[in-house]
Design a binder for these strands. Sequence first.
DNA 1: ATCTTATATGATCATATACGTATATCATTG
DNA 2: CAATGATATACGTATATGATCATATAAGAT
Lengths: 110, 110
Amino acid sequence: MKTRPLSSEALDLVARRFAVLAEPMRLRLLQLLFDGEKNVNALVELTGGTQANISRHLQTLTESRLLRRRKEGLQVFYSIADPTIFKLCELVCGSLEKEHTAMAGVFRRE
Amino acid sequence: MKTRPLSSEALDLVARRFAVLAEPMRLRLLQLLFDGEKNVNALVELTGGTQANISRHLQTLTESRLLRRRKEGLQVFYSIADPTIFKLCELVCGSLEKEHTAMAGVFRRE
DNA sequence: ATCTTATATGATCATATACGTATATCATTG
DNA sequence: CAATGATATACGTATATGATCATATAAGAT
């Protein structure tokens, strides 16, 4: 895998994408949307967050094109727009899990 | 892919991992280490950053177990410890690239 | 037009963190 | 035991961003 170095602008974009994913509440929202679209109110209730806060996070996720927005009457429905987040989260979770078991083994005596 | 919801603590860990990756300079360092281990001074020169700043970023990356630290005399060599970053960066870059070309196409007339 | 409901936004405050300067630690050499 | 060289850390400052409260917008109902 011989990749030429990314430009400074490209690195900024990649960093920005990671930053969007670096909030537990946003990860929670993404996870809740894994099994299909939901409206804001549903997400507010499922997360227990305030309406204002959830709305802002949804905005952040939509601006970065991870979510899609669909307006229907009074309600707004959000859904996953970028399927790579599935793999992304899977990768990170797998890596962390591995680390965790490895850490646990450090002090184990046999 | 039926995944049960992650616990709040797990979400914090995942968010933390993403946060570590959310800095352009750290991404730059990771990228420079893609083709093998380097010592701090080399990384300082290659990035043009200050020694203090690079050292701190390397610490952050090592604490999160993305890098491995090897001390040899006066020098300290860092190298990639978690191979999932390759795929992680690949995924994000691919997704962003796709978006970019899609965005470019929005205003294209044929 | 007024009222209600669902969602978005402005203002503010608190917290986190990146950066630079200066200094400390640690290993090597004389 | 200095003195030197490579790396790490303490501290201050500037900036970014998350949470909350209050309010605004927008769409539908009366």
